[in-house]
Amino acid sequence: MLSPQRRDQLTGLALLAPTVLLFAGLIFYPMAQSLFLSLHKVSTLTQRTQYVGLANFQALFADPAFLTTFFNTIVWTVGAVLLQLVLGVAGALVLNGRLVGRSLARGLLLFPYLLPTAVAVLVWRWLFNDLYGLINHVLMSVGLIAAPIAWLSQSPNAMITVILVGSWKFFPFVIIAVLARLQSIPESLYEAAQVDGASRWAQFWDITLPQLASVLSVVILLRGIWDFKEFDLIYLMTGGGPGISTQTLPILVYREAFQLLNFGRGAAVAVTMFGFMLLFFAVHIWATRHHETEGR
């Protein structure tokens, strides 16, 4: 007969068993296989594998196209995260204050986050359309530009457009995280500052921003991770083009593995990305720990 304590523990394990099995089979086993494939040459026809050591990685890092792709990924991630931060903090401040129709405004600002990426892309591609797009039409009719701009098919434009659309789609995350924190800043801090005659601007820099610092650092990490791995939005906006000027690492994985059928090399890119994820994740854990011990 098992002791009640022991039986309780077994119940717990039984409840967790399906989760653990699915994680093992669908996440950890494929992760290991990615690693395995990245060290092999895979024949497209027979899928026979041949161990090649780090050759896939060496070929990758020596390829200028990979370096461009890596650089694009950094530009996209940094650009999108920064713009999201500015828009998100501004949105949160507005929604935290007095505003007529605040809950409607909140809904309208937050909705893009849950909108299917495919829909966001379709609408924006229609707005940015070279010939019939509303944006070119408006800019031309107010005289800002003389001829239609190729928003998505010319080189620096495409990256800028993608960053703009990505920020529009993902900035609600920053709003929601910052808004939750704003509501817990003690009102007394602002009252004291008002007594001292501090301007609104000074209150923002000296009270609000320092209070938000901890949230913002975690928001930067999370959004950084999520934007770093974003495939759908960029691929659907530009397909990585023109040329490879908006190709990011996830798009490269897809191309190598499923368009060029170069499984080993695709896996090598994926594993490289995974290495960066580990780094991000380590920083995330370190930051939250650091913060908990420092906080209280």
Binding site: K229, P250, M277, F280
Partner: peptide, 24 residues
Amino acid sequence: LIAHMVLFTYMLPAVVLLLPLYLI
């Protein structure tokens, strides 16, 4: 450990699993 794993996998890029999952 399991709790951390959950958070970690939630952040895992889909492209890392894409190729092996496709093969499976």
